[in-house]
Amino acid sequence: MLVPVTNTDRARALYDLGKATIFASKSDPRFSYCMYVPPHIDIAEHPMELVVIVHGTGRAFVEYRDAFAEFARWNDCIVLCPLFPVGVLGDGNRDGFKQIKEGELRYDHILLDMVDEIGAKFGCDFSRFALFGYSGGGQFVNRFALLHPERLWTVSIGAPGSVTLLDADRDWWVGVRDMEQQFGKALNIDALKQVAVHMVVGAADLETWEITHQEGGKFYMPGANDAGSTRPARLESLRQSFVRAGIDVKLDIVENVPHEGLLCVDTVQDFLANALKQRRAAIVGKQPADRNDNS
């Protein structure tokens, strides 16, 4: 017997599934997001996992959604791409989200509200998720991972212009000495060790005009340029700070790639696919073995 297709079903297929439309966040409608939701979500082989992708200064959030659509379809994942607009406080600031905190805004909390909203909408457990960001998004995910490692199963930090090192001798944002005073949350190295950490940058990503901090600049502080002059150098400094803390890191330097995040997507997806395979294997391993009542 055929089940009639209702208008609600049609609307869900058009606007909620596949390359879904753009939604305002329920917790703060100044912020919005787009998604890719596999159309087979109701009959998927695996429970859905969530992959969050944070745009850079250019806000190419839809382009990143589209670039990850096939990955999500074949790996039973929902992709969430938030939009943190320029000038939310009316001042034209392009960079607030990168620092996690802008005035009274906490961009980490805004993202977590979106994650909870999507989990409730689709009936999924997204208590832990994957996180990737490139350029300005790389700054965000670097700092988000330090603040909320318990919410992540993997993080991929792409070509950040500035990095927050695991350096207890320097204040935020260069280091983490006063992180608890700044954000009300202490650094949890043990939780960070449970996260699969990836870093990626193009070998030809060598321009410095946008990332060199000048005295008197918006985010200048002592040590702002000490991690290196280029993005590859700064990412290597970040990697070393993680390794010194006992955290494993996979660093990919993509040959012949300048500062172009979409050219790094394949490399990121390779890492995510492997991390996802390991995560699902670990989940299966924790489940009780089937019991044979005849034994």
Rank of each mutant, 00 (worst) to 15 (best):
V3Y: 06
T6Q: 12
N7T: 04
A11I: 08
A11E: 07
L14W: 04
Y15N: 05
D16T: 03
L17N: 10
L17G: 14
G18K: 11
K19S: 15
I22Y: 00
A24Q: 11
A24P: 08
A24Y: 06
S25M: 04
K26L: 13
P29I: 02
F31H: 05
V37H: 07
H40Y: 09
D42V: 03
I43Y: 10
L50C: 02
G56N: 11
A60N: 06
A60E: 11
A60L: 13
V62P: 01
F68I: 12
A69D: 04
D76C: 03
I78H: 03
F84K: 05
V86R: 15
G92L: 03
R94E: 12
K98N: 13
K101F: 03
Y107K: 13
M114E: 03
M114Q: 12
D116R: 15
A120E: 15
Y134E: 00
G137I: 03
R143K: 10
F144N: 11
W153S: 05
G161E: 02
S162V: 01
D169V: 03
D169R: 07
D171I: 00
W173I: 00
Q182W: 03
A186M: 00
L187K: 07
D190G: 12
D190A: 14
A196S: 10
A196P: 01
V201K: 02
V201N: 02
A203L: 09
A204G: 15
D205N: 08
G223R: 06
N225G: 07
N225D: 15
D226V: 01
S229W: 08
R231D: 08
R234T: 02
R234M: 07
R234Q: 04
R244G: 15
A245I: 00
V249P: 12
D252E: 14
D252K: 11
V257G: 01
P258A: 14
E260Q: 10
G261Y: 07
V265L: 06
D266L: 10
D270G: 10
L272K: 01
K277A: 13
R279P: 04
R280A: 01
A281R: 14
G285V: 02
K286F: 10
Q287N: 08
Q287Y: 05
